[in-house]
Amino acid sequence: MTPLVQAEQAVLGALFLDPGQLDRLDTWLHPEHFSRPAHSALYATMLKLQADEHPATTAPVGGPVPLAWITDTLYEASTHARGLTPSYPHLLISACPRPDHAPAYGRMVLEGAIRRSVAQHAARLHQAALADDRNGTVAETLHHAQVLSDVLTDLARAWGTKARPAQPPTAYTPQAAPPPPLSEQGLADEEFLLGCLASRPEQLLELVHSLLPDDFADPGNQQIYRALVALHHRGEPIDQLTVLWETQRRGALADGVLDAKRVRRICDPLLGGAAEHFGEQVVQASLVRTATLTAGQVGALADRDALAPGQLISYALHTLHPLDDVRRRLRTARQAEPEPRPSLSPPGAPAPSARSDAARVRSRLADTTLSAASTAVPHRSSTDRRTHRSPK
């Protein structure tokens, strides 16, 4: 039997022995704070009988406790939870060392509830992020991230402390788990976005405040984006060669993160396009990855029994900072989306999909120069040759 279960038994035993202790608990200890359904049902019944002014709760302090207090509590609670036998209240009474220590036992129950609640909501955020990663969405991740933040604030209020983020000491800093693997579609989105920015650098003005290098899952793409932003801030020209030179200056070619062929391929000027959609896609993918890592770190903190509830809440709020930053930048990216242009397609025609641009990246021919040359020099038909023959 764990100390938490013993604390739950002790506080209920104290209330059976001295119902007047409810006045010291009812404002901050709630039935949902108990981990076992039977204990939750017993405590909820006691609160109900108190509200109904049961004779045991209105008796003078220190007076005898009527037997009806035990039998009525047991009868009412048995309608809501199984496993409550007539002997169970006596087991609870024997588990209570001192009835007047009920508030101390109640704080133990509340501490266990705080730890359990943080772990449960962190697990829900983790599951939501995994589901959104599979579905290519972020709605569930955004919802559960906000729920976790609100829960931490409410738990701080319940514990009687302020919701102040605090950086955990090195000994309690959660270890970062390896990031989820980058999908082929995600890599295509990142590369096409960089190609759009390299061919039309003016689009960086729309993305530089919502898109950071760490939003790119691929390390090589991170370096290319850093080079693009650096050239943009210095007001220097941006093309295949300048980006390649900047990545070389930053050591990305020397350490093997990138090679010159890949930089030229990604920054191909023939593959330009609008970057807004793919910028949002990259930030969304970053949100899901960050939520996965954050949920694991918060869950690891909740497993630290040595952390007091106030410390756990403060450290968990600090751990949420990177996720909150990505959420804010995603809102910025969505607010910066341009108004949709009127379609020139006939009514009923399918709208062009931005995914087709990413498909172009994956299906690009290796010899881009040859393709460009064949496109630039139109083939003259036999009719044209007959029309333009020299006169005899």
Rank of each mutant, 00 (worst) to 15 (best):
T2P: 10
P3A: 05
E8V: 08
G13H: 04
L15S: 01
L17Q: 15
D18F: 09
D18K: 15
Q21W: 07
D23Q: 06
R24Q: 12
L25S: 04
T27Y: 11
H33T: 01
S35M: 04
S40C: 07
S40A: 15
Y43R: 06
T45R: 01
Q50Y: 12
E53F: 10
P64A: 11
P66I: 02
W69P: 01
W69C: 02
W69V: 01
D72W: 02
Y75D: 03
S78K: 02
H80S: 13
L84S: 03
P86T: 02
P89S: 12
H90Y: 15
L92M: 14
A95V: 03
P99D: 00
A102M: 02
P103N: 08
G106M: 08
M108N: 02
M108V: 00
V109D: 10
L110T: 01
G112V: 08
G112W: 14
S117T: 15
S117Y: 00
V118D: 09
A123H: 06
R124P: 00
A128S: 14
A129H: 10
D133E: 12
R134F: 14
E140V: 04
H143N: 09
A145E: 03
Q146I: 07
Q146M: 13
L152N: 04
L155K: 02
L155D: 04
T161L: 15
K162Y: 11
A163S: 11
T173K: 07
P174Y: 07
P174W: 06
P178R: 11
P179S: 14
P179C: 12
P180M: 14
P181Y: 07
L182M: 12
G186D: 06
F192T: 13
L197T: 05
A198P: 01
E206T: 08
L207S: 08
H209Q: 13
S210T: 02
L212V: 05
D214K: 05
D218V: 14
G220A: 05
G220K: 03
I224N: 10
Y225C: 03
R226G: 12
L231Q: 13
G235E: 01
E236Y: 12
I238C: 14
L241V: 04
W245K: 13
W245P: 00
G251C: 07
A254N: 06
D255N: 15
A260I: 01
K261C: 03
I266L: 11
D268I: 03
D268A: 05
L270R: 13
L271F: 06
A274H: 04
A274C: 05
A275L: 05
H277W: 15
F278Q: 03
G279T: 01
E280P: 00
E280L: 09
S286I: 03
S286E: 02
R289D: 09
L293M: 09
L307F: 10
L307M: 07
Q311N: 12
L317W: 01
H321N: 03
H321G: 05
R328Q: 11
R329F: 08
R329M: 06
R329N: 06
L330Q: 08
T332S: 12
A333M: 08
R334M: 05
R334V: 00
Q335M: 09
A336Y: 02
P340W: 10
P342R: 11
L344Y: 09
S345M: 08
P352T: 09
P352R: 12
S353D: 14
A354L: 09
R355I: 11
A359R: 15
L365H: 12
A366C: 01
A366H: 13
T369H: 14
T369R: 14
A373Q: 10
T375Q: 14
A376S: 13
P378R: 15
S381Q: 13
R389Y: 06
R389S: 12
